[in-house]
Write a protein that binds this DNA or RNA. Structure first.
Length: 416
DNA sequence: AAGGCTTCCAACCGCCACGCG
DNA sequence: TCGCGTGGCGGTTGGAAGCCT
């Protein structure tokens, strides 16, 4: 793709991905991780270039994607981040857990821009349209990229162009780092990007989080699943690696919750987990009946919120699953919507649950549990500001708020 | 009902940065 | 230092779906 040698070597498929292709890619990554993307299509048996596979995974198949419509808080945050960062969508996306740069970019171009104009705000400069059109404000001729990069709060300068051109890695991004002195003259009252971002992120932190983003090793779900004695002993999942999927935060400075004393089962919910938009905060747990005392049971948590377009998911769920298999083989995340009835077998009991009952979040366990896996890398967001004082925080949807005690829910689901 | 128009978004393109030999 | 391979990013596009007349 795009001048990459791999694209010229053979006739490669283009265009939309078929479910079969998705399945192949998911299977492959579940088993081996992606490793070198250029080798993925060959190993996975796909007539695609590595770049296309990577894009498909990142933008669509990755299990930690939130999907669904953007909440108002998210939109507000995007607007504010755009005012500071400009069209650096990946940087903006780093502050919106579960959202991709492509998604945000599309939202901006199709929706937010329009809304801002309707409100009389120039989407490029974030200034009133009248002021911009008045001629005082020059709209840069070299396109939106520069116009937004050199946001009004950061006077256009070669240094800023340089900053825009060479953005920093997440850990040392402009978000986390003061601007170069040349961009913020001494004695100037112009706030730094860091300060602006801190302010706006602090504003949003009750509803959205991920103040910084770090890239760290994550593991294929099969490895996630290797939580020893999860059900059999009063241990926690502290050994599990953290995932960017908020529904996978079962470790990391974790707080333990005795979910079901009868099962002697503690669940550790990360207190480092970023807060979530309320659209995805309602969480329930489903544990298969065969969990108790089953040493061989492999556990993993997953999320699949693959709802498309108008579907707003108020009930993204955490599913802690034992080894299971799917009647229909591996389903693409996009197929695993709550209303689809994929049959799920739970271990040897062969108890069937409809997918909608099983809730979002199954990673294909047949492939997953067989795997000897290499780490795969996901962009893992760590929200240091997240404060979760109890499981009730996880139940912000109106429906689940009615269920007064989280433990009741868990207990119920455990027993079920 | 049908054709044209609009909207939305998944995927592609082109470019750049980086690592490695 | 250079060339190559690769990953990542932002801009753009094609087509499916929805809307309008």
């Amino acid at each position: 793709m795009g001048g990459h040698s791999c694209c010229y070597k053979q006739k490669l498929r283009k265009g939309l991905w078929s479910p079969e292709e998705d399945e192949k890619l998911i299977k492959h990554i579940a088993k081996y991780g992606h490793g070198c993307w250029s080798s993925v299509p060959k190993q996975a048996g796909l007539q695609r270039c590595g770049k296309s596979c990577r894009l498909r995974w990142i933008n669509y198949l990755r299990p930690d994607l939130k999907r669904g419509t953007f909440s108002q808080q998210e939109e507000d945050l995007i607007i504010e981040l755009h005012a500071v960062l400009g069209n650096r969508w990946s940087k903006i996306a780093a502050h919106l857990p579960g959202r991709t740069d492509n998604e945000i970019k599309n939202l901006w171009n199709s929706c937010i821009k329009k809304k801002l104009r309707q409100r009389g705000i120039d989407p490029n400069t974030h200034k009133p349209l009248a002021e911009v059109e008045g001629g005082d404000e020059k709209v840069p001729s070299n396109g939106e990229k520069n116009s937004s990069s050199n946001d009004l709060r950061f006077p256009a300068s070669p240094a800023n162009d340089k900053l825009a051109a060479k953005e920093l890695t997440p850990s040392t991004s402009a978000v986390d780092k003061p601007l170069d002195e040349s961009t913020t003259p001494k004695g100037s009252s112009t706030p730094t990007k860091e300060l602006l971002l801190d302010q706006l992120l602090a504003t949003h932190e009750s509803t959205l989080s991920c103040r910084s983003s770090i890239s760290m090793g994550c593991f294929p779900l099969p490895q996630l699943s290797r939580a020893p004695d999860f059900c059999g002993n009063p241990t926690t999942l502290a050994a599990l690696p953290i995932s960017s999927n908020p529904l996978l935060w079962l470790n990391h400075t974790a707080t333990q919750y005795d979910v079901n004393p009868e099962l002697n089962c503690n669940i550790a919910i990360s207190t480092d987990a970023p807060s979530l938009s309320t659209t995805i905060l309602s969480t329930s747990m489903v544990l298969p009946p065969s969990c108790a005392g089953d040493d061989a049971t492999n556990w993993y948590a997953g999320n699949c919120d693959s709802s498309r377009r108008s579907m707003v998911n108020d009930a993204t769920s955490m599913a802690l699953q034992s080894s299971c298999s799917f009647d229909s083989g591996i389903s693409a995340w996009s197929d695993l919507t709550p209303d689809k009835d994929v049959q799920v077998h739970l271990g040897e009991d062969n108890q069937d649950l409809k997918w909608s009952e099983y809730l979002h979040g199954a990673f294909p366990a047949t492939a997953a549990t067989q795997a000897q896996c290499q780490p795969l890398y996901l962009d893992v967001k760590r929200g240091g500001q997240f404060a979760m004082n109890g499981l009730s925080t996880w139940h912000q949807s109106p429906q689940l708020q009615q269920q007064s005690h989280a433990s009741d829910i868990y207990a119920k689901d455990f027993h079920s």
